[in-house]
């Protein structure tokens, strides 16, 4: 449940700011471990003596300062988190594609909180609520029920579609959050929920966007299968993949460009649903040798 102020009879209760508690708890958590703690793809470390904090990519631990670009303004974290190493836009900050090569030093826990909220938006607040057993979880069906406009159709996505979308969209290979929600209260999520520190309490907008695309695939599956059971979009994706591979390098679509065949999450979904059609179980005997 969402944290609320306890009711006190006979008057206004003082408001409890869970965000302020989260800020303090996170700083305390970091202060306790001098060598620093990992959070997503970063390591946060308390700087001895001055109350400040240092953040860097987990893969840059031990790299001399001179080899990193140094920042000291907490809002620099937004620029750090915006693009991948290759310059691609990052619509999902918990994707495992945070760039390396920087170090950010901030003066206190408030500045740390600002920086963290650009690197992992609302991550610290949810981490804190989850540790206290107070994080409100919204299951898929509940989330879908409030969608409108072009997303309303996700209400009709099958349970199997939700499960496959979660495997394609939420596992650690593509998102470092720990997935806490289920399809509904009686249908647990089958996807690997992940090992990370950052809880995911509800399907995000990237998920809903992929779910919409998968729902369109489902509709097509019922109506338009050919003699060997392939749908038009499956054939389109296969053609695009063959054509791209034939050039010697597959150029992937942008991270959340689910309308394009060569999108990684769309391909992960195809791996779950198309590959079994193309390579039925009896054909996959282990190779000899």
């Amino acid at each position: 449940m969402r944290a609320t102020s306890p009711e006190r009879p006979g008057g206004e209760s003082p408001r409890r700011s869970t965000a302020a508690e989260a800020r303090a708890a996170f700083a305390h958590w970091v202060n306790e471990v001098p060598e620093g703690l990992p959070f997503g793809q970063i390591v946060v470390r308390a700087l001895p003596g001055n109350g400040g904090y240092e953040l860097r990519h987990v893969a840059d631990v031990g790299i001399p300062d001179g080899d990193l670009v140094a920042h000291n303004e907490p809002r620099a974290a937004r620029e750090i988190a915006k693009l991948t190493e290759e310059g691609e836009y990052r619509p999902l900050k918990s994707s495992p594609n945070l760039k390396r090569g920087w170090v950010l030093r901030v003066k206190d826990d408030r500045a740390l909180y600002v920086a963290m909220n650009y690197l992992y938006p609302s991550g610290v607040a949810h981490w804190h609520l989850y540790r206290n057993g107070e994080l409100e979880i919204t299951n898929y069906r509940e989330n879908a029920a409030r969608q409108s406009g072009i997303y309303k159709r996700v209400q009709r996505l099958s349970d199997e579609g939700v499960q496959n979308t979660a495997k394609a969209c939420c596992e650690d290979a593509v998102c470092l959050k720990k997935t806490l929600w289920d399809v509904d209260e009686n249908t647990p999520l089958a996807a690997d929920r992940g090992e990370g520190e950052i809880p995911c309490p509800e399907p995000c907008s990237i998920f809903v966007s992929l779910a919409r695309r998968v729902r369109l695939f489902e509709r097509e599956n019922k109506r338009d299968l050919d003699a060997i059971g392939l749908s038009p979009s499956e054939k389109e994706d296969l053609s695009a993949l063959v054509e791209a591979a034939a050039t010697g390098s597959v150029k992937f679509a942008r991270e959340a460009e689910f309308e394009e065949p060569l999108n990684e999450r769309r391909m992960r979904y195809r791996k779950l649903t198309l590959v079994p059609k193309l390579r039925p179980v009896e054909d996959t005997a282990p190779e000899e040798g």
Binding site: A19, R23, P121, S122, A125, P201
Partner: peptide, 22 residues
């Protein structure tokens, strides 16, 4: 002063979790 979005993070759905003010 906090930013939030429909299609980016922080989402409107969760922005109030990270704000301290009453």
């Amino acid at each position: 002063v906090v930013e939030c979005f429909w299609k980016e993070e922080p989402s409107m759905r969760h922005v109030l979790d990270m704000v301290e003010a009453e």
